[in-house]
Amino acid sequence: MKLSMLRNLAVVGMGTALLAACDHNDNNRNTPEPEPEPVMLTYEVTIENISAAQPLSPVAVLLHGEQSLWQVGESASAALEVLAEGGDNSDVLATEGTLATESGSAPVGPGSNESYQLTVSDEQAAYLSVVTMLVNTNDAFTGITNKALSDLAVNDSMSMMLPVYDTGTEANSEAAGTIPGPADGGEGFNAERDDADTVSYHPGVVSSQDTLPDSVLMAEHRFDNPVARLIITRVE
């Protein structure tokens, strides 16, 4: 008797929960509440150049849906090749499916930093990509891609150290005329792909003071991982 009462109670309890759920649905169906106002989210992205003598080309900052602008082991996109060989971020910023973009106004020199603010609504989960070339190289870049931001609450911040990638689209000859940065003033983008055609981590530059006599680079142009620090803060 007592047991069966318990069972009944349990059934009633479950029924209430189900009904409650149904009520909620019915409310939505019968008297649709106004669409919730989209909440605007603003992120501040700061990049710090912690290299010795590698200016970073005008930075491309993008918020987008879930997608990677590059992947180690894959061939680089044409847009990434244009950025990583010549420092021109326009094709990367024109990536399809972006929610917001910002472009650096000028190169970010060693020891300098630059901040960007991007605002999106909360209707779609935002993923961050940041890309910039190490301009005293053939085709080295640093950045991050497809970083989920949805876990960041207001005033939350995350910081990460960035490695150097090799686009794999131009041999790392370090030769005169092949490097667009101030160490050379040579050619930027060239559509020919004469290297591994695979994005990898960068092996580092050698320089003429090391064991590459024909290099226009000097000891100070060498770099190690990490090369930059990225700080992402949700400010709104």
């Binding site: 790392n172 092996p203 050698v206």
Partner: peptide, 9 residues
């Protein structure tokens, strides 16, 4: 030297 070096990781 331009291909078979590495930086960690």
């Amino acid at each position: 030297n331009t291909v078979q070096r590495w930086l960690n990781p």
